[in-house]
Design a protein around this nucleic acid. Sequence first.
DNA 1: AGAGTTAGTAATTGATCAATCACAAATCAG
DNA 2: CTGATTTGTGATTGATCAATTACTAACTCT
Lengths: 173, 173
Amino acid sequence: MADTETTSVNRKADIISAAIEVFAEIGYFRATTAQVAERAKISQPYVFRFFSTKEELLLTALEVSWTRLIDSFRKVVDSTSPERLEPDLIQAYEDILNVYQNEILLQMQAQTIREESIREVMRQGFAEVRRIVLDAFGAAGIPNAEERTMLFLARGMLCNVSVALAMPELKDQ
Amino acid sequence: MADTETTSVNRKADIISAAIEVFAEIGYFRATTAQVAERAKISQPYVFRFFSTKEELLLTALEVSWTRLIDSFRKVVDSTSPERLEPDLIQAYEDILNVYQNEILLQMQAQTIREESIREVMRQGFAEVRRIVLDAFGAAGIPNAEERTMLFLARGMLCNVSVALAMPELKDQ
DNA sequence: AGAGTTAGTAATTGATCAATCACAAATCAG
DNA sequence: CTGATTTGTGATTGATCAATTACTAACTCT
Protein backbone atom coordinates (compact mmCIF):
# COMPACT_ATOMS: atom_id res chain seq x y z
CA MET A 1 0.00 0.00 0.00
CA ALA A 2 1.98 2.92 -1.27
CA ASP A 3 0.69 6.42 -0.63
CA THR A 4 0.24 6.81 -4.36
CA GLU A 5 -2.39 4.11 -4.58
CA THR A 6 -5.74 5.16 -5.90
CA THR A 7 -8.69 3.47 -4.34
CA SER A 8 -12.23 4.09 -5.42
CA VAL A 9 -12.84 5.86 -2.11
CA ASN A 10 -9.87 8.17 -2.71
CA ARG A 11 -11.08 8.96 -6.20
CA LYS A 12 -14.52 9.83 -4.95
CA ALA A 13 -13.08 12.06 -2.23
CA ASP A 14 -10.80 13.69 -4.80
CA ILE A 15 -13.76 14.51 -7.00
CA ILE A 16 -15.73 15.94 -4.09
CA SER A 17 -12.81 18.13 -3.03
CA ALA A 18 -12.32 19.30 -6.59
CA ALA A 19 -16.02 20.03 -6.93
CA ILE A 20 -16.07 22.10 -3.75
CA GLU A 21 -13.20 24.20 -5.06
CA VAL A 22 -14.46 24.61 -8.60
CA PHE A 23 -18.09 25.18 -7.65
CA ALA A 24 -17.12 27.74 -5.01
CA GLU A 25 -14.74 29.60 -7.28
CA ILE A 26 -16.72 29.59 -10.50
CA GLY A 27 -20.29 29.08 -9.36
CA TYR A 28 -22.15 25.76 -9.46
CA PHE A 29 -24.22 26.47 -12.57
CA ARG A 30 -21.39 28.00 -14.52
CA ALA A 31 -18.76 25.46 -13.50
CA THR A 32 -18.39 22.50 -15.81
CA THR A 33 -17.85 18.86 -14.97
CA ALA A 34 -14.74 19.07 -17.17
CA GLN A 35 -13.30 21.70 -14.82
CA VAL A 36 -14.03 19.50 -11.82
CA ALA A 37 -12.41 16.55 -13.57
CA GLU A 38 -9.34 18.57 -14.48
CA ARG A 39 -8.92 19.68 -10.85
CA ALA A 40 -9.31 16.08 -9.72
CA LYS A 41 -6.82 15.00 -12.42
CA ILE A 42 -9.18 12.58 -14.12
CA SER A 43 -11.10 12.64 -17.36
CA GLN A 44 -14.47 14.34 -17.57
CA PRO A 45 -16.56 11.20 -18.18
CA TYR A 46 -15.01 9.46 -15.20
CA VAL A 47 -16.81 11.85 -12.87
CA PHE A 48 -20.03 10.11 -13.88
CA ARG A 49 -18.77 6.75 -12.63
CA PHE A 50 -19.07 8.12 -9.11
CA PHE A 51 -21.92 10.61 -9.46
CA SER A 52 -24.78 10.01 -11.82
CA THR A 53 -25.47 13.73 -12.29
CA LYS A 54 -23.79 17.05 -11.62
CA GLU A 55 -26.49 17.81 -9.08
CA GLU A 56 -25.75 14.64 -7.14
CA LEU A 57 -22.14 15.78 -6.92
CA LEU A 58 -23.27 19.13 -5.52
CA LEU A 59 -25.49 17.35 -3.03
CA THR A 60 -22.60 15.24 -1.79
CA ALA A 61 -20.30 18.25 -1.58
CA LEU A 62 -22.89 20.05 0.54
CA GLU A 63 -23.26 17.04 2.82
CA VAL A 64 -19.50 17.00 3.36
CA SER A 65 -19.50 20.68 4.27
CA TRP A 66 -22.38 20.35 6.74
CA THR A 67 -20.82 17.29 8.33
CA ARG A 68 -17.59 19.21 8.87
CA LEU A 69 -19.41 22.07 10.56
CA ILE A 70 -21.64 19.88 12.69
CA ASP A 71 -18.78 17.63 13.83
CA SER A 72 -16.73 20.68 14.73
CA PHE A 73 -19.53 22.23 16.78
CA ARG A 74 -20.25 18.94 18.52
CA LYS A 75 -16.60 18.62 19.50
CA VAL A 76 -16.67 22.08 21.07
CA VAL A 77 -19.92 21.42 22.91
CA ASP A 78 -18.60 18.13 24.30
CA SER A 79 -15.32 19.55 25.53
CA THR A 80 -15.65 23.14 26.69
CA SER A 81 -16.96 24.88 29.79
CA PRO A 82 -20.24 26.82 30.02
CA GLU A 83 -18.37 30.14 30.18
CA ARG A 84 -16.22 29.32 27.14
CA LEU A 85 -19.06 27.76 25.14
CA GLU A 86 -20.07 30.71 22.98
CA PRO A 87 -16.58 32.11 22.34
CA ASP A 88 -15.32 28.61 21.51
CA LEU A 89 -18.18 28.03 19.07
CA ILE A 90 -17.40 31.35 17.43
CA GLN A 91 -13.73 30.40 17.24
CA ALA A 92 -14.60 27.03 15.71
CA TYR A 93 -16.66 28.74 13.03
CA GLU A 94 -13.93 31.25 12.28
CA ASP A 95 -11.45 28.39 11.94
CA ILE A 96 -13.69 26.68 9.41
CA LEU A 97 -14.15 29.95 7.55
CA ASN A 98 -10.38 30.21 7.32
CA VAL A 99 -9.51 26.65 6.40
CA TYR A 100 -12.61 25.52 4.51
CA GLN A 101 -13.79 28.82 3.09
CA ASN A 102 -14.87 27.17 -0.15
CA GLU A 103 -17.29 24.90 1.68
CA ILE A 104 -19.00 27.90 3.24
CA LEU A 105 -19.07 29.74 -0.08
CA LEU A 106 -20.72 26.67 -1.57
CA GLN A 107 -23.32 26.64 1.20
CA MET A 108 -24.02 30.30 0.48
CA GLN A 109 -24.65 29.50 -3.15
CA ALA A 110 -26.91 26.62 -2.21
CA GLN A 111 -29.06 28.91 -0.06
CA THR A 112 -30.67 30.27 -3.22
CA ILE A 113 -30.89 27.11 -5.32
CA ARG A 114 -34.50 26.03 -5.65
CA GLU A 115 -34.09 22.31 -6.43
CA GLU A 116 -35.93 20.55 -3.66
CA SER A 117 -33.16 18.04 -2.94
CA ILE A 118 -30.68 20.87 -2.42
CA ARG A 119 -33.07 22.84 -0.21
CA GLU A 120 -33.63 19.72 1.88
CA VAL A 121 -29.92 19.26 2.60
CA MET A 122 -29.61 22.94 3.45
CA ARG A 123 -32.63 22.90 5.77
CA GLN A 124 -31.36 19.79 7.53
CA GLY A 125 -27.92 21.33 7.96
CA PHE A 126 -29.25 24.58 9.39
CA ALA A 127 -31.75 22.79 11.61
CA GLU A 128 -29.08 20.51 13.06
CA VAL A 129 -26.61 23.32 13.73
CA ARG A 130 -29.38 25.30 15.40
CA ARG A 131 -30.37 22.29 17.50
CA ILE A 132 -26.81 21.70 18.68
CA VAL A 133 -26.24 25.34 19.62
CA LEU A 134 -29.63 25.75 21.27
CA ASP A 135 -29.25 22.59 23.36
CA ALA A 136 -25.73 23.57 24.40
CA PHE A 137 -26.78 27.10 25.36
CA GLY A 138 -29.66 25.62 27.34
CA ALA A 139 -27.43 23.07 29.11
CA ALA A 140 -24.92 25.82 29.90
CA GLY A 141 -27.65 27.78 31.62
CA ILE A 142 -27.40 30.69 29.25
CA PRO A 143 -30.51 32.86 29.64
CA ASN A 144 -32.69 33.54 26.60
CA ALA A 145 -31.09 30.59 24.87
CA GLU A 146 -33.44 30.85 21.89
CA GLU A 147 -32.61 34.48 21.22
CA ARG A 148 -28.91 33.92 21.84
CA THR A 149 -28.95 31.05 19.37
CA MET A 150 -30.68 33.24 16.79
CA LEU A 151 -28.04 35.93 17.29
CA PHE A 152 -25.24 33.38 17.04
CA LEU A 153 -26.55 32.14 13.71
CA ALA A 154 -27.16 35.70 12.54
CA ARG A 155 -23.57 36.71 13.23
CA GLY A 156 -22.46 33.60 11.37
CA MET A 157 -24.42 34.64 8.29
CA LEU A 158 -22.90 38.13 8.43
CA CYS A 159 -19.43 36.60 8.75
CA ASN A 160 -20.11 34.64 5.58
CA VAL A 161 -21.03 37.76 3.63
CA SER A 162 -18.09 39.62 5.09
CA VAL A 163 -15.73 36.90 3.87
CA ALA A 164 -17.40 36.42 0.50
CA LEU A 165 -17.25 40.12 -0.34
CA ALA A 166 -13.94 40.75 1.44
CA MET A 167 -15.54 43.43 3.66
CA PRO A 168 -14.01 42.95 7.12
CA GLU A 169 -15.65 46.17 8.32
CA LEU A 170 -19.04 44.44 8.21
CA LYS A 171 -18.33 42.16 11.14
CA ASP A 172 -15.36 43.62 13.02
CA GLN A 173 -16.94 45.31 16.04
CA MET B 1 -50.30 59.28 -23.70
CA ALA B 2 -52.28 56.12 -23.14
CA ASP B 3 -51.26 53.78 -20.37
CA THR B 4 -50.48 51.17 -23.00
CA GLU B 5 -47.75 53.21 -24.63
CA THR B 6 -44.34 51.66 -24.68
CA THR B 7 -41.49 54.05 -24.26
CA SER B 8 -37.91 53.00 -24.35
CA VAL B 9 -37.72 53.71 -20.63
CA ASN B 10 -40.70 51.45 -19.95
CA ARG B 11 -39.20 48.68 -22.03
CA LYS B 12 -35.94 48.86 -20.14
CA ALA B 13 -37.76 48.79 -16.82
CA ASP B 14 -39.82 45.82 -18.02
CA ILE B 15 -36.68 43.92 -18.88
CA ILE B 16 -35.11 44.69 -15.53
CA SER B 17 -38.22 43.54 -13.65
CA ALA B 18 -38.36 40.39 -15.74
CA ALA B 19 -34.68 39.74 -15.12
CA ILE B 20 -35.07 40.12 -11.35
CA GLU B 21 -37.86 37.56 -11.37
CA VAL B 22 -36.22 35.08 -13.70
CA PHE B 23 -32.74 35.35 -12.20
CA ALA B 24 -34.12 34.98 -8.67
CA GLU B 25 -36.31 32.01 -9.53
CA ILE B 26 -33.95 30.09 -11.79
CA GLY B 27 -30.52 31.35 -10.82
CA TYR B 28 -28.52 33.92 -12.76
CA PHE B 29 -26.14 31.52 -14.48
CA ARG B 30 -28.79 28.98 -15.35
CA ALA B 31 -31.42 31.50 -16.44
CA THR B 32 -31.41 32.35 -20.14
CA THR B 33 -31.91 35.68 -21.83
CA ALA B 34 -34.74 34.01 -23.74
CA GLN B 35 -36.55 33.39 -20.45
CA VAL B 36 -36.07 37.01 -19.43
CA ALA B 37 -37.36 38.15 -22.82
CA GLU B 38 -40.40 35.91 -22.59
CA ARG B 39 -41.26 37.29 -19.16
CA ALA B 40 -40.86 40.82 -20.49
CA LYS B 41 -42.97 39.89 -23.54
CA ILE B 42 -40.34 40.79 -26.09
CA SER B 43 -38.07 38.78 -28.36
CA GLN B 44 -34.78 37.44 -27.06
CA PRO B 45 -32.50 39.57 -29.27
CA TYR B 46 -34.30 42.73 -28.22
CA VAL B 47 -32.88 42.40 -24.73
CA PHE B 48 -29.50 43.24 -26.21
CA ARG B 49 -30.75 46.59 -27.50
CA PHE B 50 -30.90 47.73 -23.90
CA PHE B 51 -28.13 45.71 -22.28
CA SER B 52 -25.02 44.80 -24.15
CA THR B 53 -24.43 41.64 -22.12
CA LYS B 54 -26.31 39.42 -19.72
CA GLU B 55 -23.94 40.52 -16.97
CA GLU B 56 -24.77 44.17 -17.53
CA LEU B 57 -28.42 43.29 -17.07
CA LEU B 58 -27.60 41.60 -13.77
CA LEU B 59 -25.60 44.63 -12.69
CA THR B 60 -28.52 46.96 -13.40
CA ALA B 61 -30.96 44.65 -11.61
CA LEU B 62 -28.71 44.67 -8.56
CA GLU B 63 -28.48 48.47 -8.64
CA VAL B 64 -32.28 48.68 -8.68
CA SER B 65 -32.53 46.38 -5.68
CA TRP B 66 -29.95 48.31 -3.65
CA THR B 67 -31.55 51.62 -4.52
CA ARG B 68 -34.90 50.34 -3.28
CA LEU B 69 -33.42 49.22 0.04
CA ILE B 70 -31.36 52.36 0.56
CA ASP B 71 -34.24 54.71 -0.30
CA SER B 72 -36.49 52.82 2.06
CA PHE B 73 -34.02 53.01 4.95
CA ARG B 74 -33.37 56.70 4.30
CA LYS B 75 -37.09 57.42 4.43
CA VAL B 76 -37.33 55.70 7.82
CA VAL B 77 -34.30 57.51 9.20
CA ASP B 78 -35.65 60.89 8.04
CA SER B 79 -39.09 60.41 9.50
CA THR B 80 -39.04 58.36 12.68
CA SER B 81 -38.18 59.00 16.32
CA PRO B 82 -35.03 57.78 18.08
CA GLU B 83 -37.06 55.23 20.09
CA ARG B 84 -38.80 53.87 16.98
CA LEU B 85 -35.68 53.93 14.80
CA GLU B 86 -34.55 50.34 15.09
CA PRO B 87 -38.00 48.70 15.07
CA ASP B 88 -39.01 50.84 12.09
CA LEU B 89 -35.86 49.88 10.17
CA ILE B 90 -36.59 46.24 10.92
CA GLN B 91 -40.18 46.70 9.73
CA ALA B 92 -38.99 48.41 6.55
CA TYR B 93 -36.71 45.47 5.80
CA GLU B 94 -39.44 42.94 6.48
CA ASP B 95 -41.74 44.85 4.14
CA ILE B 96 -39.15 44.70 1.37
CA LEU B 97 -38.60 41.01 2.05
CA ASN B 98 -42.33 40.50 1.60
CA VAL B 99 -42.93 42.66 -1.45
CA TYR B 100 -39.59 42.48 -3.24
CA GLN B 101 -38.39 39.08 -2.13
CA ASN B 102 -36.88 38.38 -5.54
CA GLU B 103 -34.60 41.38 -5.27
CA ILE B 104 -33.21 40.09 -2.00
CA LEU B 105 -32.83 36.58 -3.39
CA LEU B 106 -30.88 38.10 -6.27
CA GLN B 107 -28.63 39.97 -3.86
CA MET B 108 -27.99 36.70 -2.04
CA GLN B 109 -26.92 35.08 -5.27
CA ALA B 110 -24.67 37.98 -6.08
CA GLN B 111 -22.87 37.64 -2.75
CA THR B 112 -20.97 34.66 -4.16
CA ILE B 113 -20.37 35.84 -7.72
CA ARG B 114 -16.72 36.61 -8.25
CA GLU B 115 -16.87 39.00 -11.23
CA GLU B 116 -15.29 42.19 -9.97
CA SER B 117 -18.03 44.49 -11.30
CA ILE B 118 -20.67 42.50 -9.43
CA ARG B 119 -18.63 42.46 -6.23
CA GLU B 120 -18.19 46.21 -6.49
CA VAL B 121 -21.94 46.87 -6.65
CA MET B 122 -22.49 44.51 -3.72
CA ARG B 123 -19.77 46.13 -1.62
CA GLN B 124 -21.10 49.61 -2.34
CA GLY B 125 -24.62 48.54 -1.44
CA PHE B 126 -23.61 46.96 1.85
CA ALA B 127 -21.31 49.85 2.71
CA GLU B 128 -24.04 52.42 2.10
CA VAL B 129 -26.68 50.55 4.10
CA ARG B 130 -24.22 50.18 6.94
CA ARG B 131 -23.33 53.87 6.79
CA ILE B 132 -27.01 54.92 6.91
CA VAL B 133 -27.82 52.66 9.85
CA LEU B 134 -24.66 53.52 11.78
CA ASP B 135 -25.15 57.27 11.36
CA ALA B 136 -28.80 57.02 12.35
CA PHE B 137 -27.99 54.92 15.44
CA GLY B 138 -25.32 57.43 16.37
CA ALA B 139 -27.65 60.42 15.88
CA ALA B 140 -30.34 58.68 17.91
CA GLY B 141 -27.92 58.35 20.81
CA ILE B 142 -28.00 54.57 20.77
CA PRO B 143 -25.04 53.26 22.81
CA ASN B 144 -22.56 50.92 21.13
CA ALA B 145 -23.83 52.06 17.75
CA GLU B 146 -21.15 50.08 15.90
CA GLU B 147 -22.04 46.80 17.57
CA ARG B 148 -25.77 47.47 17.26
CA THR B 149 -25.31 48.15 13.55
CA MET B 150 -23.39 44.91 13.14
CA LEU B 151 -26.18 43.01 14.90
CA PHE B 152 -28.83 44.73 12.79
CA LEU B 153 -27.08 43.67 9.60
CA ALA B 154 -26.50 40.19 11.00
CA ARG B 155 -30.20 39.68 11.75
CA GLY B 156 -30.94 40.90 8.24
CA MET B 157 -28.68 38.23 6.75
CA LEU B 158 -30.34 35.54 8.86
CA CYS B 159 -33.76 36.79 7.74
CA ASN B 160 -32.64 36.35 4.15
CA VAL B 161 -31.64 32.74 4.72
CA SER B 162 -34.80 32.10 6.67
CA VAL B 163 -36.90 33.35 3.75
CA ALA B 164 -34.82 31.67 1.04
CA LEU B 165 -35.04 28.26 2.70
CA ALA B 166 -38.54 28.76 4.09
CA MET B 167 -37.32 28.13 7.64
CA PRO B 168 -39.22 30.60 9.85
CA GLU B 169 -37.86 28.93 12.99
CA LEU B 170 -34.41 30.34 12.19
CA LYS B 171 -35.35 33.93 12.91
CA ASP B 172 -38.57 33.83 14.93
CA GLN B 173 -37.46 34.45 18.52
C1' DA C 1 -0.72 -17.76 -18.85
C1' DG C 2 -5.11 -16.04 -19.30
C1' DA C 3 -9.95 -15.22 -17.87
C1' DG C 4 -12.33 -11.83 -15.38
C1' DT C 5 -12.74 -7.54 -13.22
C1' DT C 6 -11.63 -2.80 -12.26
C1' DA C 7 -9.87 1.74 -13.67
C1' DG C 8 -9.82 4.90 -16.95
C1' DT C 9 -10.23 7.59 -21.47
C1' DA C 10 -11.26 9.43 -26.45
C1' DA C 11 -14.77 10.57 -29.19
C1' DT C 12 -19.26 11.85 -29.79
C1' DT C 13 -23.98 13.55 -29.18
C1' DG C 14 -27.88 16.26 -28.67
C1' DA C 15 -29.16 20.13 -26.50
C1' DT C 16 -28.67 24.75 -25.13
C1' DC C 17 -27.38 29.58 -25.15
C1' DA C 18 -25.43 34.47 -25.63
C1' DA C 19 -24.86 37.34 -29.07
C1' DT C 20 -25.09 38.93 -34.07
C1' DC C 21 -27.13 39.81 -38.46
C1' DA C 22 -30.32 40.85 -41.70
C1' DC C 23 -34.45 42.38 -42.24
C1' DA C 24 -39.54 44.22 -41.45
C1' DA C 25 -43.05 47.16 -39.49
C1' DA C 26 -44.40 51.16 -37.41
C1' DT C 27 -43.87 55.94 -36.26
C1' DC C 28 -42.41 60.56 -37.19
C1' DA C 29 -40.84 64.94 -39.51
C1' DG C 30 -41.20 68.03 -43.28
C1' DC D 1 -46.71 61.53 -49.36
C1' DT D 2 -42.03 60.19 -48.43
C1' DG D 3 -37.66 59.64 -46.47
C1' DA D 4 -35.64 58.85 -42.08
C1' DT D 5 -35.65 57.07 -37.61
C1' DT D 6 -37.24 54.02 -34.09
C1' DT D 7 -39.03 49.68 -32.63
C1' DG D 8 -38.95 45.21 -33.11
C1' DT D 9 -38.28 40.12 -34.80
C1' DG D 10 -36.71 35.55 -37.30
C1' DA D 11 -32.90 33.10 -38.39
C1' DT D 12 -28.43 31.96 -37.50
C1' DT D 13 -23.90 31.18 -35.41
C1' DG D 14 -20.22 29.61 -32.84
C1' DA D 15 -19.38 28.02 -28.57
C1' DT D 16 -20.23 25.20 -24.70
C1' DC D 17 -21.69 21.36 -21.87
C1' DA D 18 -23.78 17.14 -19.41
C1' DA D 19 -24.06 12.74 -20.34
C1' DT D 20 -23.34 8.36 -23.23
C1' DT D 21 -20.90 5.10 -25.84
C1' DA D 22 -17.45 2.36 -27.11
C1' DC D 23 -13.28 1.46 -26.16
C1' DT D 24 -8.29 0.32 -23.94
C1' DA D 25 -5.13 -0.54 -20.11
C1' DA D 26 -4.05 -2.40 -15.91
C1' DC D 27 -4.55 -5.30 -12.26
C1' DT D 28 -6.20 -9.79 -9.76
C1' DC D 29 -6.90 -14.42 -8.96
C1' DT D 30 -6.15 -19.14 -10.03
